[in-house]
């Protein structure tokens, strides 16, 4: 959305408050990422340490493996660092 198409000061709620609960979901932070975690399902032992350590809740539990929610993953690399099976590689994002 361009700056001009956003609402002006007369129409937004005062004090910067947000009236709709849970609206942070709409703010996708995945494009902050410089490196993306890529999971090697062959190596993954489903220990779930990445799921525990992810500060953004961007690791999703599947039935036998885990998946990354790239809409919110900021690419901090904590999951790759913690993974005891070395199943997560940080790959540079290229435009």
């Amino acid at each position: 959305m361009s700056e001009e198409s956003k609402p002006g000061w007369r129409s937004i709620p005062i004090a910067g408050i947000i009236l709709e609960p849970g609206s942070a979901m709409k703010y996708k932070t995945g494009d902050w990422r410089a490196f993306r975690p890529v999971i090697d399902e062959e190596k993954c032992t489903y220990c779930l340490l990445c799921w525990i350590y992810c500060p953004d809740g961007a690791i999703i539990r599947e039935e036998k493996t885990v998946r990354v929610n790239y809409d919110y993953c900021k690419g901090c690399g904590i999951c790759a660092n913690e993974c005891p099976a070395k199943a997560i590689t940080m790959v540079e994002e290229k435009k």
């Binding site: 700056e3 956003k6 609402p7 002006g8 000061w9 937004i12 005062i14 004090a15 910067g16 408050i17 947000i18 009236l19 609960p21 609206s23 942070a24």
Partner: peptide
């Protein structure tokens, strides 16, 4: 009746506030 107070507010809304 949850609302959010003091959220991060960058270049797009800080000036309006």
């Amino acid at each position: 009746k949850p609302i959010t107070v003091g959220p991060i507010c960058f270049t797009d809304f800080f000036f309006e506030t």
